[in-house]
């Protein structure tokens, strides 16, 4: 994620035999996945299935017990690789720094890495906030924003990095349907505009089937199936069908 930009297109992500345990309990049981450059890949599964843990491994926040995550064939744990490829993550909570204003949060990467002069940073911050439909919030602090606004600021912060890979952790959770659609549109626009590779972790079926090029279903730390949305829908696995077709049908016996 340095100033040197080797390529503008998205990057390929390979996950091979990834295993992770916490306190003796294995939460990832040998995950194998490939995300192609420039595709939107949705990882769906019920809560506690290991989606977010997998995402943390992809961005290098967690060290696997076994297996490897690589970007364009190079292991993610290497600092050189993290310096070479520009990656960003949109956290479920937004993870904005509460002591900084919105503008400071969005421009943090550029300021800390001294990539642009201050006046240029102000311009870029405004431009990225415009992209996610936020105007006039630069001076506000995260605790003055709604959940949807925080998430959009978090996306703007990711955009500043000019990423080749963006990871989204539950981008539409806690949002109303209108804002959720806006976020989904942003994800697709980004892919079209800069060809970024997007890995979206979600249990929002509408989001996944609405925007993803491919979808993987994960259950108890194991990938049940990965393929095009239509193939996922047709897959006869009862666990997949139960997850995809779960509905509110509440029968109250009088």
């Amino acid at each position: 994620m340095s100033a040197t930009h080797p390529t503008q297109r998205g990057v390929r992500v390979d996950i091979q035999g990834l295993r992770k345990s916490y306190g003796g309990q294995e939460v990832l049981h040998g995950i194998d996945l490939t995300v192609q450059p420039g595709e939107i890949f949705a990882l769906m599964g019920p809560s506690g299935s290991g989606k977010s843990v997998l995402l943390k491994h992809v961005i290098g926040l967690e060290k696997p017990d076994a297996g490897e995550v690589s970007i364009e064939g190079e292991p993610i744990r290497s600092q050189a690789v993290r310096d070479r490829y520009r990656m960003a993550m949109v956290f479920q909570s937004g993870a904005l720094l509460n002591s900084l204003t919105v503008a400071e949060n969005v421009g943090l990467y550029l300021v800390e890495h001294r990539l642009k002069p201050p006046a240029e940073i102000v311009r870029i911050v405004r431009e990225k906030l415009d992209l996610v439909g936020l105007n006039g919030v630069e001076a506000k602090y995260p605790n003055e924003l709604s959940g949807g606004m925080k998430k959009r600021v978090s996306i703007a912060r990711a955009l500043v990095i000019d990423p080749q890979l963006i990871l989204y952790d539950e981008p539409t959770s806690e949002l109303d349907p209108l804002i959720a659609v806006t976020i989904a549109e942003e994800i697709v626009k980004l892919k079209r505009r800069i060809g970024v590779t997007s890995l979206v972790v979600t249990h929002d079926r509408d989001l996944a089937f609405g925007i993803a090029d491919r979808i993987a279903i994960i259950q108890d730390g194991t990938i049940l199936f990965a393929g095009a949305p239509a193939d996922v829908k047709r897959n006869p696995d009862p666990l997949i069908q139960r997850f995809l077709n779960a509905e509110f049908k509440i029968h109250i016996e009088s």
Binding site: M1, G60, F91, S93, L108
Partner: peptide
């Protein structure tokens, strides 16, 4: 308390994903 809450609320994770060293910052 400040660093602890940043850890709990994933702000330190966010710094790391931006390649900002929490020890330095």
């Amino acid at each position: 308390a400040e660093i602890g809450s940043m850890k709990v609320y994933q702000e330190i994770d966010a710094l790391q994903t931006m390649n900002i060293n929490p020890n330095s910052y």
